[in-house]
Amino acid sequence: MNSILLKTLTIILGLIALGFGFWLAINQQRNTGPLISEEVGIVYPQAREIGDFQLVDFDGQPIDQQRFKDKWWLVYFGFTFCPDACPMALNDMKKIKVLFDEKIAQQVDFAFISVDPARDTPDRLKQYVQYFDPDFLAATGEMSDLQELATRVGVVFVVPENPENQNYVVDHSTFMLLWNPQVNLQAIFKAPHKPEDVVKGVKKIIAAF
């Protein structure tokens, strides 16, 4: 009788140990897995260096990388005459800001960088971005400076050189970029941006770096 009890107990303990082993293995895999899934975006384990840059903010004041220091920034490159992708991205940013818990919200700011300085004057940019959220920053700059900055952060845009009229469209990347407090590129979020996914991603990235 005792030996049967002993065997049963051994089997039960064995099964528990096996289950615990599986749980540990799965958990470990989860911890070492990517911070965000491939559909959501890409995290650079070593942040990509952005370097020095020059822009003009929505008050017409020159700004450089120092303006972005000591905070995490979600940055979107676009143009205000864009009727679809840009307002959608800015609306997503607005939702993301609301969804952040207080601790994260204090660490993250938002910026819209216009790649269409010919039409996007500082005044227009201010009106535009503040329609979405009064705390959002907007900036633009010299075309050559914008080209260089975009290239460094992996953003592509094409402004027609001699447009037939003022209603031209600009092809552009739809990434939402995450810059770290040293003003280097830590991650990109792909469109369509699901606010909940970006919020989870940003939280994990801030915790990890």
Binding site: T80, F81, C82, P83, D84, P87, R124, Q127, Y128, Y131, F132, N167
Partner: peptide
Amino acid sequence: IREAPPGIPTLA
């Protein structure tokens, strides 16, 4: 039609 921010002359 998406409401546009003020002063934006394009709509989708």
